[in-house]
Amino acid sequence: MNDRTENLLLALPGLLLLALAFLLPIGQMLALSISGPDGPTLDHFVRFLSDPYYLGVLWRTVRLSFLITLICGAIGFPLAYIMTKVGPRLRLWLVVMVILPLMTSVVVRTFGWMVLLSRSGLIPQMLRDFDLVGRNFALMQTEIAIVVGMVQVLLPFMTLSILGVLTRIDGRLEEAARTMGCSFLQTVRTVVLPLALPGIVAGSLLCFTLSASSFVTPNLLGGSRIQVLAASIYRSVTSAPDWPFAAAQAVILFVGILLVLLPYIKLTGGKNG
């Protein structure tokens, strides 16, 4: 047996699992999305894309996912950078702190946010007490609530992706930049940021795909008024069982994420990783 067949053999169980658990359901979903009473049809897609309500849901999903990814990056990069600069003990504590939320279920965390953000919850109450907002101010069932909840869920993915790349950057490069006339911020911009790009891209991809397909947090924090695509799919399946329409929405979500991934992958492919 040569190396090639040996490698193939070793990869076989994984490939098999992938085919059974991933490719097969996706195929099924694709088939379902174009199934109609009288043979294959694109009606479900037409219905989705011609209805302003559903287009609004799609737009909100994409918009919120971008916003969440952006905020995760804006918090995650400095956090990861600081983690590479502090001593090993403090770094361990910071890593634990970042990972800790992952150890409780998303549902529990989201209920936590519901308590904090609800009308009589801590945060709106405090803002009202300081007269920073009006009496009718609410946070629950707004897009802000979804963003806050999702950022907390996804921040570890962004931070750890960036941290992995940052720890491999030679610290002397930053020192060299300083001796060549860069201030601290210029060093971060011209040296650290470009070299951390692969980590930032990986983290952004994770954040974007996870938030575009997330269901629990947006559903609980956004309520029924503010729907995202995953919640809309859920409703299509549960309230008026319409499997083909749900499948069509899932395909649109799938293709949408794929379209976002492509330029990203190109972006990293050209740079040195």
Binding site: R172, L173, E175, V191, N272
Partner: peptide, 9 residues
Amino acid sequence: FQSYALLPH
């Protein structure tokens, strides 16, 4: 620098 510290990008 001993390690040259050239910017790889």
